[in-house]
Design a protein around this nucleic acid. Structure first.
Length: 287
DNA sequence: CTCCAGGGATCAG
DNA sequence: CTGATCCATGGA
């Protein structure tokens, strides 16, 4: 059971299982956040939220009990027991045991589907600091101002007013035409994001991939991070690197081969495994 | 200068 | 089916 209560203008969460806000945000699944003096500030679900950790509790503010229950419990996946998931993954696999220990405070978010879709179109052949800048520029240009200087990510309808040139001005580069295709297919209902959440993963994936600029990897990220398909194992350059190193003796292995191996090793927990591995892999190159 | 980034579209074989 | 090339852009 979750233990939280109103404290001042925010919510205090006690005895949280597997919750490190820095790991949750810095593990590459989301992009609209920044460090503050005491913690992090995120823009998500049409709100600005500050998060600070102490030894005894985690503070979320500004936030009411109703808001916490309606929005943030689901967003931060707080109803999922990560202790069990980590135990399953760590048993019988020494690599995952280390990866899970290193990122023991990671949680997979349940993000907004539209924002996630566009964000991962932007992510292709790009790096994380630059992805964050581009998404912030798009939000400032087309999004609604939530509070002083903080802009929500624009809806598909808000992006109808965009064109290739203005998106290029947000440094989207060759991805501008992909964003426009996504706006068109979603606003006309050719790709119905809400209806898709009811569909079987394979059908859902096929529909997402009808949008130009959404291929195998980008659709996998959208499925995992905003449609809750936690068995999906996205393979980017980092995951490819770490999988090759630990499970293929460093050989240059194909992405389908990596998917086969991940399915065999991690099964229904593939999405969680992938996130621990991504965070684990990058520490060898940074910090 | 070149190489790389949470890749995909396109074309060659 | 698999593999090579191009795509915008900024940081290393």
């Amino acid at each position: 059971m979750l233990h939280f209560e109103q404290a001042g203008n925010g919510i205090a969460l006690f005895e949280a299982d597997s919750f490190s806000i820095s790991q949750i945000l810095e593990c590459g699944q989301c992009f609209r956040f920044e460090k503050t003096e005491k913690g992090y500030k995120i823009i998500a679900m049409g709100r600005v939220l500050y998060i600070e950790e102490t030894e005894s509790k985690i503070m979320f503010y500004p936030c009411s009990v109703a808001e916490f229950e309606d929005i943030w419990i689901n967003y931060f996946d707080l109803d999922t027991n990560y202790t069990i998931i980590k135990e399953v993954l760590a048993s019988n696999d020494p690599v995952m045991r280390d990866a899970v220990e290193y990122g023991s405070g990671i949680r997979l978010l349940n993000q907004d589907k539209w924002e996630c879709l566009i964000s991962f179109i932007i992510s292709q052949n790009n790096n994380i600091p630059r992805i964050k800048k581009i998404i912030n520029l798009i939000s400032q240009t087309y999004g609604t101002e939530i509070s002083e200087g903080c802009y929500d990510f624009p809806t598909a309808n808000e992006l109808i007013s965009a064109d290739i040139a203005s998106l290029m001005a947000c440094n989207t580069g060759f991805r501008a035409k992909y964003i426009m295709d996504a706006v068109e297919k979603v606003t006309t209902g050719q790709v119905d994001i809400n209806e898709l959440s009811l569909l079987e993963t394979a059908v859902l994936k096929e529909s997402l991939m009808s949008i130009k600029g959404i291929g195998n990897k980008v659709s996998d990220c959208i499925l995992l991070f905003s449609f809750g398909r936690r068995d999906i194992f996205p393979v980017d350059v980092w995951v490819k690197r770490v999988m090759s190193h630990f499970y293929f003796k460093g050989e240059d292995v194909s992405i389908p081969e990596i998917h086969k191996k991940a399915e065999k090793l991690f099964g229904e927990y593939g999405g969680y495994a992938q996130q621990y591995l991504f965070y684990y892999a990058r520490q060898f190159y940074f910090k």
